[in-house]
């Protein structure tokens, strides 16, 4: 029965519709997921819970959009989780321990992230380390180490309101952190599609030699890419501090993996050159919705890992099948 239905559908389906389907694959997955969870849990589709998801997704969403850039250039940034920790520890030291202005603290938080990101870029382009996996693996450990050393592993609590604002406040029912995500994503969308540097990022990921011979300053673009990724780690840290009113050196442990997962589920290619801002948002939302839904169903955390792992593989596999097909044609 179902075979017959699929076949007739396929015949009706014209090229455009197929393209739309493959383009919106992750979105369709998200909608399916939401529908199923709505049926399974009466609490799922309530204003309260939707806003919870919005808030819970925001840290990973911010890291993921930063991560999208290195992945678009066929690279990776493993350091973001550690940079998040270091950024917030430094912010804690400046504002809580030293009692300086919260705005200076925010500046320090973002600057530490961006600074280490810049260092990642320099290591990659000027020291010519062979792959960003290596340089960022190095800075990942360095940053985590410093984050632990600066306070002797002690957490810092009691941040001023100005710092907590982003992660804590609401506008009506909507968390400020999610509004921030939307604003950041819009900016990234414009940056990637409508600016020279944005387009160069795709060009470098697609074919670095062709990009270089087309007059693109590849090193400069890569440094920008890693700096932005680090900056987003700092911003995500700021949101996290707002949510929990404390900074601790083990914050963001292995968050880079969730960020990478969001980017990949969102349809970006590890080979570089392919991936979108909206796909990444959907990837981050899929992870957050899954986690939240599984929590509501009281599914044990260990099992949640298994599900998320399966989703990553399934999402990429579907993409591989699609590409295999388009290359044959």
């Amino acid at each position: 029965m179902s075979q017959v239905v699929v076949k007739t559908k396929n015949e009706v389906m014209n090229g455009t519709l197929k393209r739309v389907l493959s383009k919106f694959g992750p979105l369709i997955g998200l909608i399916l997921l939401i529908m199923v969870l709505t049926v399974l849990s009466p609490k799922f589709l309530t204003v309260n819970n939707v806003m919870n998801i919005a808030r819970q997704s925001s840290i990973n969403a911010l890291l993921a959009i930063g991560m999208l850039l290195p992945i678009l250039t066929a690279g990776i940034d493993l350091s973001v989780g550690s940079l998040l920790a270091l950024s917030i520890m430094m912010m804690g030291i400046v504002t809580v321990n030293m009692g300086m202005s919260p705005f200076l603290g925010i500046l320090v938080c973002l600057a530490v992230g961006a600074g280490f990101g810049w260092l990642n870029g320099i290591l990659l382009t000027k020291l010519r380390l062979p792959h960003p996996f290596i340089s960022t693996l190095g800075t990942m450990n360095i940053a985590r180490g410093i984050a632990l050393i600066v306070t002797g592993a002690a957490p810092i609590a009691g941040f001023p309101y100005a710092i907590q604002f982003l992660g804590r406040e609401f506008v009506g029912p909507i968390p400020v952190s999610f509004l921030l995500v939307i604003v950041v994503y819009v900016i990234f969308h414009i940056f990637l599609t409508r600016t020279q540097t944005g387009r160069y990022i795709y060009a470098i990921g697609g074919n670095p030699e062709a990009a270089r011979l087309s007059g693109i300053n590849v090193d400069r673009v890569l440094i920008i890419v890693y700096t932005i990724s680090g900056l987003m780690a700092g911003l995500a840290g700021l949101v996290m501090v707002g949510r929990v009113n404390s900074a601790f050196p083990l914050a963001g442990l292995s968050y880079e993996l969730d960020a990478i997962a969001a980017v990949i589920i969102g349809g970006a290619s590890f080979m570089g050159g392919v991936g979108t801002v909206w796909g990444t948002l959907i990837g981050a939302l899929i992870i957050a919705v899954l986690r939240n839904g599984l929590n509501l169903l009281n599914v044990p955390a260990d099992f949640q890992m298994t599900v998320i792992g399966t989703v990553i593989i399934a999402a990429v596999f579907v993409d591989v099948l699609r590409q295999r097909k388009s290359k044959k044609a």
Partner: peptide, 12 residues
Amino acid sequence: GEGLLLDQTLDF
């Protein structure tokens, strides 16, 4: 290898 971005559109 050196001229095209195979996964990008013609206008790109």
